[in-house]
Amino acid sequence: QLNAMAHQIQEMFPQVPYHLVLQDLQLTRSVEITTDNILEGRIQVP
């Protein structure tokens, strides 16, 4: 299920590496919260 959620987020934010999306999802278990984390700059994109 997390993989499906990660792919959904990757479609919206292809610039964010998959492993970072998955790592955040493991903590949040939420597409909405992880999306917010990306938008708020809480996930550092190399």
Rank of each mutant, 00 (worst) to 15 (best):
P17E: 06
I38D: 01
A4K: 12
Q44E: 09
T28E: 02
I38C: 03
T28W: 08
H19P: 07
V45G: 09
T35R: 13
T34C: 04
V21P: 01
I33Y: 07
E32H: 08
L22W: 10
Q23P: 01
M5H: 04
V45K: 09
E32L: 11
N37W: 03
M5R: 05
T34Y: 00
L20M: 09
G41P: 01
L39S: 06
L27F: 11
R42F: 06
V31A: 08
L25T: 00
Q8E: 10
T34G: 01
A4D: 09
T28V: 01
M5C: 08
N3T: 13
R42T: 05
V31E: 05
V45R: 08
I38K: 01
Q8W: 12
V21M: 04
E32V: 10
L22F: 09
T28F: 05
L20Q: 05
A6F: 06
T35C: 12
I38M: 04
N3S: 14
V21Q: 02
L25A: 00
V31K: 09
L20I: 09
I43N: 02
N3Q: 14
M12S: 08
I9C: 02
Y18Q: 07
N37R: 09
P46Q: 10
L22T: 03
T34V: 02
I38Q: 00
V31M: 10
P17C: 10
Q23R: 08
H19V: 08
D36M: 15
L20S: 05
A4W: 14
R42D: 02
V16W: 08
Q44F: 14
Q44N: 10
Q10Y: 14
E11T: 13
E40T: 14
P14H: 04
S30N: 08
M5G: 03
L27P: 00
T34W: 02
L27C: 11
R42Y: 06
V45A: 10
V45Q: 10
M5T: 04
Q1S: 14
T35E: 04
L25Q: 01
E32G: 08
L27G: 06
Q15V: 06
Q1W: 15
T28C: 05
Q10P: 00
T28L: 02
V21L: 10
Q44I: 12
M12D: 05
D24N: 06
P46I: 12
Q26F: 14
E40D: 08
Q23C: 09
V16E: 00
N37S: 03
Q15H: 15
V21N: 00
N37C: 03
E11N: 11
L2S: 03
V16F: 11
Q10V: 14
R29A: 08
Y18M: 11
V31D: 03
N37G: 03
I33D: 08
I38A: 02
R29F: 14
Q10M: 14
Q15M: 12
A6W: 07
L27D: 08
E11L: 15
P46H: 10
L2I: 11
S30P: 01
I43C: 05
Q8R: 14
P17A: 07
L25G: 00
G41H: 06
I38G: 01
P46V: 11
Q26N: 08
Q10D: 02
E11K: 15
T34I: 03
A6E: 01
V16A: 05
Q23Y: 09
T35W: 07
D36T: 15
L25D: 02
M5I: 08
H7C: 13
Q23H: 11
P46E: 11
Q23T: 08
Q1Y: 14
L27M: 12
Y18S: 06
L25N: 00
A4R: 12
E32C: 09
P46L: 11
L2V: 07
M12T: 07
E40R: 15
T28P: 02
Q8D: 07
L2C: 09
Y18E: 05
E40M: 15
P17Q: 05
Q23E: 12
I9E: 00
Y18D: 03
P14L: 04
R42Q: 04
P17R: 04
Q1T: 14
V16L: 10
L22K: 04
Q15T: 11
L25Y: 02
S30G: 01
F13H: 06
V45T: 11
Y18W: 13
D24W: 07
L39T: 07
I43D: 00
V31L: 10
N37M: 02
T35N: 04
I9Y: 00
Q23S: 09
I43W: 06
S30A: 04
H19Y: 13
T28I: 01
I33H: 09
Y18L: 11
L39M: 09
H7M: 14
T28G: 01
V31R: 08
L22Q: 04
M5Q: 06
E11Y: 12
V21C: 06
Q8C: 11
P17N: 06
R42E: 02
P14G: 05
Q44S: 12
Q15W: 15
V45D: 09
H19F: 11
N37I: 02
Q44W: 15
H7P: 02
Q26C: 12
P17M: 05
L39P: 00
L2N: 03
F13E: 00
A4V: 11
P46Y: 11
A6G: 05
T34Q: 01
S30F: 03
P14S: 05
L20H: 05
F13T: 01
M12N: 08
L39W: 06
G41L: 06
Q1L: 13
L27Y: 11
R29I: 06
E40I: 08
E32T: 10
M12Y: 07
L39C: 09
Q23G: 07
P17Y: 04
E40V: 09
Y18F: 14
V16Q: 02
Y18C: 08
I38N: 00
I33S: 08
I33Q: 12
N3Y: 15
L2K: 01
L25P: 00
R42C: 06
V16P: 04
V45L: 12
A6P: 01
V16Y: 09
S30L: 03
A6Q: 03
A4Y: 13
A6H: 02
Q15A: 10
P46G: 11
E11H: 13
Q10A: 14
L27H: 10
Q26S: 09
F13L: 03
I9F: 03
P17T: 04
L20K: 05
Q26H: 10
V45P: 09
F13G: 00
D36F: 15
E32I: 09
E32D: 09
L25S: 00
Q23W: 11
L27V: 12
Y18I: 12
S30W: 02
I9G: 01
Q10K: 13
Q15I: 06
P46K: 10
I43T: 03
L20Y: 07
V45N: 10
T34N: 00
M12F: 07
Y18H: 07
I9V: 09
